[in-house]
Design a binder for these strands. Structure first.
Ligand code: SF4
Ligand code: SF4
Lengths: 150, 150
DNA sequence: ATAATTCGGATAGTTATTGTCCTAATATAA
DNA sequence: TTATATTAGGACAATAACTATCCGAATTAT
């Protein structure tokens, strides 16, 4: 019961993109290098982000990635769900157990509410806010030492 | 990012206990049989429940398990945490990434809030409520067809 | 054409979860 | 005391999920 490490890579990768000049296209290898991540796995993560519409990808020479939405549109929820998918937190295999409640079971309903509550919290935090923090505290985040606009 | 199947076993096992006469001691094998669960794994689950103080265990002849708290004291949060432990939903390995934010990082704070929110929802549902539902809908839950008080 | 780059699939390595088994400890009863 | 019933706990095996690597195909700029 933990977010996978792919979420961590995604969050920090997106933050790295957000810190570039707007519309700057970044190489995957640069993202990986800056944060000491395995580039081959990060590639998979970025493919998921692209599919989810959080980043735009460009193939070929001078290709790479850039954000597909403004940082204030991208929330932590978008990121985690892009990586982890949207399977419910609790889905009992009633195959073992004969049970005809199905739709209106207080247990399942409770988990559904809890899950909604979890993601609605994550939805409140945007990449913009993370970026703002990163700008304020840039000196303490060595992995983010990138040239910024201007 | 899903609650493990052990949680499902635990919830339904506790519900089975709750449906017995108060202070009735139940054999693990009966719980497993009623729900067609692997008894050896259910044993592990019940050991965790015992450690967490949700059930009392009795060894030896006429031994078994019973609830250690009244059904209205046991919440879904207690159960899930007894099984899954309390490791945080998100704990980035800053080993890869040099970052000095640590304590006051908006990302980590967001996940912490989200996690609290998740568990606070789960805390609102008690075994008593599940039991009441089970009593109302007994006919639709074949795995729970047990003799009840009286 | 050539070089640079992402895409997608296959696959391998690693870790976590789920399940089994065996022995020890404990409790009851004859 | 001995036999029997039952949980505790550790070691282990099987399975599944996650993480990581690799390669050929597609795409694009030069
Ligand atoms: S009681 Fe609810 S969670 Fe359990 S098997 Fe029935 S429908 Fe599923
Ligand atoms: S930015 Fe926050 S989550 Fe990322 S490495 Fe720094 S402290 Fe950890």
């Amino acid at each position: 019961m933990q977010f996978s490490i792919g979420c961590e890579y995604a969050i920090h990768g997106l933050l790295y993109l957000a810190m570039q000049r707007p519309d700057e296209v970044v190489l995957l290898t640069d993202v990986a290098k800056a944060q000491n991540l395995p580039v081959s796995y990060l590639a998979k993560v970025f493919q998921l982000l692209a599919k989810a519409g959080l980043v735009k990808s460009f193939r070929g020479a001078h290709g790479g990635y850039m954000l597909a939405q403004t940082p204030d549109q991208i929330t932590l929820r978008d990121v985690t769900q892009a990586i982890e998918g949207t399977t419910p937190l609790y889905s009992p295999l009633s195959s073992r157990r004969e049970c005809g409640l199905a739709a209106d079971c207080v247990i399942k309903e409770a988990f559904t509410r809890a899950e909604k509550s979890l993601f609605s919290e994550l939805e409140k935090v945007t990449l913009k806010e993370m970026m703002d923090q990163a700008i304020r505290m840039r000196s303490r985040m060595k992995w983010l030492q990138v040239p910024v606009a201007g």
